[in-house]
Nucleic acid binder design. Sequence first.
DNA 1: CGCGGTAAAACTGTCGACAGTCGGCAATCG
DNA 2: CGATTGCCGACTGTCGACAGTTTTACCGCG
Lengths: 249, 249
Amino acid sequence: MLYPRVNAMALPTAAPRPFIQQQNLVEQVADYLTQAIIQQHFLPGERLSEVQLSRDLGVSRAPVREAARLLESRGLLISKPRRGFFVRALNAVELEDVFDLRLCLERHAIHRLVERYTPDAQRALKQQVEVLCEAAASNDGTRRIEEDLQFHRLMLHYAGNERLLRAFDDLTHELRLCITLITKTHEAPDTIATSHFKLLDALDSGSPDACREAIDYHIGVARDFVVKGVGETGDSSDEDSADEDVLPR
Amino acid sequence: MLYPRVNAMALPTAAPRPFIQQQNLVEQVADYLTQAIIQQHFLPGERLSEVQLSRDLGVSRAPVREAARLLESRGLLISKPRRGFFVRALNAVELEDVFDLRLCLERHAIHRLVERYTPDAQRALKQQVEVLCEAAASNDGTRRIEEDLQFHRLMLHYAGNERLLRAFDDLTHELRLCITLITKTHEAPDTIATSHFKLLDALDSGSPDACREAIDYHIGVARDFVVKGVGETGDSSDEDSADEDVLPR
DNA sequence: CGCGGTAAAACTGTCGACAGTCGGCAATCG
DNA sequence: CGATTGCCGACTGTCGACAGTTTTACCGCG
């Protein structure tokens, strides 16, 4: 083992932090854990030992626990009392739900966006598609996904509802759980490109119906892609809790 | 001050826990803080001192911190590094965003629900409306709101997407931030009743368009109600952070 | 009387430690 | 030989304490 301190960890896809101030330990540990989970250094369903993590990262257990709670709220971890934290494992149904919610959010967003489609937004989206195309041509699967998500983030952003954007961000955290499934099944670069250009065209047309059709198609493709990829791989999770359908308040 | 220990707090809408085991301190503190914020024992924008809380509740600071992080993820608190936790204060724009997202979620939910409208769901919703009507006749404003939310929770539940329900729950936490504003402006009991009966009728009709119209009207009324209530009261929040529109990844 | 600077107080971030609990292993009994 | 029970190790939940930072109060000076 003997990992270095968190300061020295390599994060190729880390969030750009232009500010001078370094984040506190909690966020650093959270970022580290997020990356480790996404890159499958921790497998779905695996238990995370607090002492092990704190030893490896060279910090005490308090920041580790707080970071774990943060990731739990993001749906990346699940805590079982007195048992510890486990890496969340999405089964097929949960994955369907995630994409259904994504459809819900993006439909709404694109309708809001087409109402207030400024040149600024148009320019930014167009530019991001270009970045995405460039990424799609590369072999870096993770970057491809991130640029794709960033495009959708931009859409949500220019839709003008910050809370909607937050809901989307919460969702993407879970989406990244199965990111490796997507990166492995190498989607054709031009498919990605045309799929996004269709969205731009629909927005340019100004027709809400065209936008809805475009986003439905777009997300449908992504859904089929991931659901196909998951197949029999990542179901697991829990069969022991048989009292889940009582709808607690 | 001198609140009692967290064990003694009254939670009329507490989750049913048939098991012997009591929850851990973190959840207890989180529930306590949630109730305290909702009942405005802590005012919006107010800072929460960790030591003060831990003294008052008779626990150490670790559970308080973890509970505070939990509530931060729910949007009830905001943490500023090295400054502490503050009660979230929703301004008018944020409130609009919340209701817009609620519209987004419930539109989607009711469309999913009308596709799979089982007798079970119909019965449960009808019963909940009756409970709501009873609550609406009472003077307990908090209970009125909670039963109202519970009805919508049921709708989301029977829509069959657990993730959608979670997104709604996350949102209602923020909705409760301005709950007192709603309870003060006493809505007419029969208005509430008929408004919900319309939803049931739309579902019975099986027409997606009717459902959409009903939910749009329903949430529109609620939105106007709250937005009118907030008026000049709860804006505040922060004017110091001028770098919020850079769209961080 | 107002203002700037300094020092003290209070608070947050982090740490190490202790106690209760859970899971696994082995010894024992049927 | 299989099931049960007691024990042991490991781990989580919680606590008190220390260090660095922010806020506040106070004091001198203009």
